[in-house]
Amino acid sequence: MKLKANTVSRLSPWLLTIFVVICWEIICRGFDIKPFLFPSPSLVWKVGKELADPIMMHALHTLMTTLAGFAIAVVVGALLGMIVGSSPIVYKALYPLMVGFNSIPKVAFVPVLVVWFGIGTIPAIVTAFLISFFPVVVNVAAGLSTLEPELEDVLRSLGASRIDILRKVGIPRSLPYFFASLKVAITLAFVGSVISETVASNLGIGYLMMSASSSMNMPLVFAGLIVIGAMGVITYELFALLERRLTRWAHRGQASAM
């Protein structure tokens, strides 16, 4: 019985996806919706198959751009999160500024980035970085700030320095928070790169979708949306797998309860 439940649990995302696609197809055919308004999945599949090569070229460009911005966000976010989380003074001084900066819509930065760097890949990388580094900072800082003061006092009484406490206890303690933030940040990085590509690029899925929408080629637009969604799901699952492998000790209680 438990094995059957586990099988259903594993297959549930695929079953739900198939159900949604079938309903989508039935609605488009049943109500005779025009393709330039809402194309059916079969038409999206047909167009995607016919234009597979250009779609893959633009998708790879978006993927590389997103990963570049995401990598910078992880490095900067982790370092800044350690600084913020390990110092209450820095936390109080810097956190309101970061919250205010994160509240600004990142699409507003794209025209500025175009003036600074021109149209191309760099604005997309910077936009992906700007939109994805904040979750990393917040989660790393939260992980470090949850370290009990009593534990710090005990470690200091044993001769541990601030660096020792951070390296041997604080950073391992914040790893579950860090890997949880990566799953959020990678999806946001895709949002940032695609936003920039729609405005300031001549490559990428965002550019492809804008070009297709200008000619009312909605099946190609939806094909681009599906490709972006698929890349987001795959990268999310990769980081979820990495989280389970490297922070298994933090989820032992949850695993045993399940």
Rank of each mutant, 00 (worst) to 15 (best):
L3W: 13
K4R: 11
N6S: 14
N6M: 12
R10Y: 14
R10W: 11
S12L: 15
S12W: 12
S12K: 07
P13D: 06
P13V: 04
T17P: 00
I18W: 12
I18D: 06
F19I: 03
C23F: 12
E25G: 02
I27W: 14
I27A: 13
I33K: 06
P39T: 04
S42W: 12
L43T: 04
V44R: 05
K46Y: 15
E50S: 11
E50R: 08
L51A: 13
A52H: 08
D53M: 10
T66F: 09
A68Q: 10
A68M: 10
I72M: 12
V74P: 00
V75M: 06
L80C: 08
L80Q: 02
S86M: 10
P88L: 02
I89Y: 15
I89G: 07
K92C: 01
L94P: 00
I104S: 04
P105I: 05
K106A: 00
V107Y: 05
V110M: 03
P111I: 01
V114N: 01
W116A: 12
I122H: 06
A124I: 01
I125K: 03
A128P: 01
V140K: 05
A141K: 00
T146N: 14
L147G: 06
L147P: 02
L147V: 14
E148R: 14
E148G: 03
E150K: 12
E150L: 15
L158R: 06
L158P: 00
A160D: 08
I163K: 14
I165R: 04
I165M: 13
K168H: 15
K168M: 12
G170E: 07
G170C: 05
I171A: 09
I171M: 13
S174C: 13
S174G: 07
S174I: 08
A180Y: 06
S181R: 01
T187K: 04
T187R: 08
L188E: 02
L188Q: 07
L188V: 02
A189Q: 01
S193Y: 04
V194G: 03
V194Q: 02
I195R: 00
S196V: 01
G204M: 03
S215Q: 09
L220E: 09
V221W: 10
G224F: 08
G224E: 08
I226P: 02
V227A: 11
G232K: 02
V233K: 11
I234T: 12
L238V: 11
L238F: 14
E243I: 01
R245Y: 07
L246E: 00
H251S: 11
R252S: 11
R252K: 09
R252C: 06
G253L: 10
A255Q: 12
S256K: 11
